[in-house]
Amino acid sequence: MLKIIVLAKQVPDTHNVGPEAMTPEGTVNRAALPTVFNPEDLNALEQALRLKEQVPGSTITMLTMGLPKAAEVLREGVYRGADEGILLTDRALGGADTLATSYSLAQAIRKVGDYDIILCGRQAIDGDTAQVGPQVAEKLGLPQITYTEEILSCENGKIVARRHIDGGVETVEGPLPIVVTVNGSAAPCRVRNVKRVMANKHKEFTTWGAADIDADPMQIGKAGSPTNVKTVKSIVFKAKETKQLTASDEDINNLMKELIESNTIG
């Protein structure tokens, strides 16, 4: 029996910035973006669900930190097959960078106490940092397997996984307990189970604040964050002088002639 914790994050959907989220000045209005279940956390959940199928009696607990609304990802996880959910929410935890976030998550995991595998997405699409998984592992003193594409087996206290590396793949073996971060190229997550949706529409989730996880005030929120955002500049798409051409032979031949004569190509 495996005790699995899946870390999930509710994020603004930065992968699908539509025209409705663009301001007249050509910048992105982040508040106008809908929130989604961080895509790679869904890949992680799928790996957890597969382990649960392979090892009967295993349990999956979802853990998220965020605003009370973030409980939506817990519910979505339970609809797809997770057993329980824990929401970590507290104003004192807000304004956290990746390090303060991972400390808070690590404290919550310590409070859960009994775990074999901590699974999470490689990175979240709102920051693309890929830091929280390894930072949690370091805080808990656990080994890690990052960029995982598939968990191949989990038996006798050892996990074997295939992971992406630059220019290839490798298969690694590590001891439990362990932190595993899952790549977007891993199997997509199964859809909601109708029966689970019916049964869990009003499921209550455990909610913890900073005091519940015995957090050191100097390691959470803004105070616990070594990094500070000094300035933020919105990107503005500045229109260049663009030469408009048609697909006619004349326009194309003239362009190519110009590029060849100026030694730009050729």
């Binding site: 990746t98 390090l99 991972s102 890929a130 964050s225 070594p226």
Partner: peptide
């Protein structure tokens, strides 16, 4: 892949800030 596996662990151990990418 290596830097993004190693960097966060080092920063977590030393409590130092790490900015990705």
């Amino acid at each position: 892949v290596i830097g993004r596996d190693l960097g966060p662990r080092v920063s977590s151990a030393l409590h130092s800030g790490l900015t990705a990418d």
